[in-house]
Design a protein around this nucleic acid. Structure first.
Lengths: 196, 196, 196, 196
DNA sequence: TAGTAATCGAGACGGTACGTCACGTCTTAAG
DNA sequence: CTTAAGACGTGACGTACCGTCTCGATTACTA
């Protein structure tokens, strides 16, 4: 865990934050969103329910904090030497996040909740903006290499790539493995046009 | 509403199905998934709680029935004469669904909840499968016209198109108007590579 | 069963009264008062719930009818040649009614309900008055034999005898067997006074 | 009411125990066992339903607690100097309980329900056992005075006395006044035999 | 033998209460 | 200042029976 336990700066959480986060993520991973209850997390972490409510106003906020603390969602910035290679790496990473435990439940829970939680939505917005800015070298290099038009829109590309994976896995409940990354990227890069 | 109230065919729901569906969708749109409760829908539709439970075993089943009945989500199958035109039409429709009232709130509420509701997820799965099969003429025609490889994967294309819109609007909380459909489709079709 | 099925006199019950009564008493005997539900009795007797409600307004009324039909509670009028013998026989009979199946549940159910059902209470009143009048020969013979004062009150004696058994078995939840009849009668007849 | 509200000793019930008990007994007396519902008692006492369930697992347990708290049923232990006098006093007390308000309704409601409520029956059992043990001095003194055989069974005597009153008042719906106590006791003590 | 009541089955419904769960809040006291 | 301990109000859950109602469909007496 990565909680700053320096206690002495700003109060940034309860003393047993790590235990609470562990319980939170554990319950989430074990039984899904509904299996995680504040009471359950309190019980498992040996902390009183009121302590959790003192620091996070809702289950979703707690999940968010636990997620941030876990660093499970840190972006990767591949540099394979080609745009296609980089995008495949990014796609594989996204697929991993959305299929692996415990990230799958965590991510879907948070982003689902964002729909009716403006605050969470704002967090998600800056999270993805930050992510995109970190990924920008990938596209800058591709432009330099001549693989990408100078006026191409990295955000649109990442929307297409990430959105397709999200849509297929989360919304359409289809399956994906890392091996599905390459074909998807090829479809994306080659354009759908052109006949066989 | 479109409930068959002919009562005389097979009984397919409670007498006041329409009022129940209206209440269901209304509550969903107004406050999201959690604001919709069986008790609330019963109260608003002037029906007893037990009547709802008599016909649908869960909130999710009720939502499914209400959505199907509403026909709000019926697919469009454009035929503009070109793949690009058709895709733009599809994209505009999707953008419309995800920005207009009341569909925006309904769709996001339901699909957000699908993340931790296996039953809802199943509904969504068959819904999108059905939708894709209805859209298949678009791609068949494109293949005939030579605009699309015969072995192209329509599902992947729709994942890219719909996913990008979903990701940008719902997850990244960005804005879109119907005018954003065309550039997106062009990015998708042209491949990211070659520049203007 | 003893239902008059002569149908032609006053309508006196549903066609399948016997099946309904059997189901009623069966459920009562098997699971006690709470296990008997109108729905359950209807289901078991293969009759529609509404048919039962058409003929009896409540569960208790149904029980009453089933009981009367069953003739399980017909009084006995012993004639053993002595008051003590007769009273012992009566006591044994009462003990039998209050310990045996299904009479125990039936009797307690009906008499319990009588507490807040004036009509049932009236029925009970005439039932016991009738019973007492049928038992009166026992006391008349005892007076003739000189075993009982001419001004003795048979009702008081039966209250004492029946009440003691009822109290012990039903209210104090104690146990009794037919063998407890003789000592009880002896205590009653000898008066409590007199030392060993 | 007699709840120890000293709160500081062991917590022995909810804060508003008295209001709950009052509501419980009120509903019981007014409408009998069935008119008492946990929801009703909660509403009348201004307490939430869950609070009642937190402290008593069933309606019967609640009734038991309310009755114990009320002290309405505390036994009397007369000492008039003679067995007959003591028994008459006991009989008058019982008659009072079964004819006065609110005890009549409470007692009949509870004991009627005991017939099909094992838990209530258990409560009644220990209640009467306790009562009998408290009354035992009456019989011990009678034995010492030579009014009662040393091997006489106090339980049987109280069954006869209480049972006769119960039977006449509750089951046979007859009337009784305190003046009926003396003749009844005389019949009991003198034995039914010998005449005036 | 047909007609016409009485009776019934089927199915839905509003309603009350059940007993449970988890929520989020509060107070009091301890560390 | 933080936490524990514990009680509480609140809303909703999903279930069980209640007792009622409206229809056809059966019966079965009766003319």
């Amino acid at each position: 865990m990565h909680t700053t336990t320096h206690r002495g700066g700003r109060a940034s959480g309860p003393r047993d934050a790590e235990a609470i986060f562990a319980a939170t993520l554990g319950l989430l991973a074990e039984g899904g969103y509904d299996a995680l209850t504040v009471e359950g997390a309190a019980a498992r972490s040996g902390v009183n329910k009121t302590t959790i409510y003192r620091w996070w106003r809702s289950k979703d906020e707690l999940i968010g904090a636990a997620l941030v603390d876990s660093r499970l969602l840190e972006p990767v910035v591949p540099d394979t030497g080609s745009l296609e290679g980089d995008l495949v790496a990014l796609a594989r990473h996204i697929i991993g996040l959305l299929t692996g435990e415990p990230t799958r439940d965590l991510v879907t829970a948070v982003l689902a909740a964002a729909g009716h939680r403006p605050e969470l939505a704002r967090h998600a917005k800056v999270f993805f903006a930050d992510r995109l800015s970190k990924e920008s070298p990938v596209f800058a290099r591709a432009v330099q290499r001549g693989e990408l038009a100078a006026d191409a829109d990295p955000a649109a590309l990442m929307d297409l790539l990430g959105g397709a994976i999200w849509f297929r896995l989360v919304i359409r409940s289809d399956t994906m493995t890392p091996d599905d990354a390459a074909p998807l990227v090829r479809t994306l890069l080659s354009g759908a046009a052109r006949s066989s």
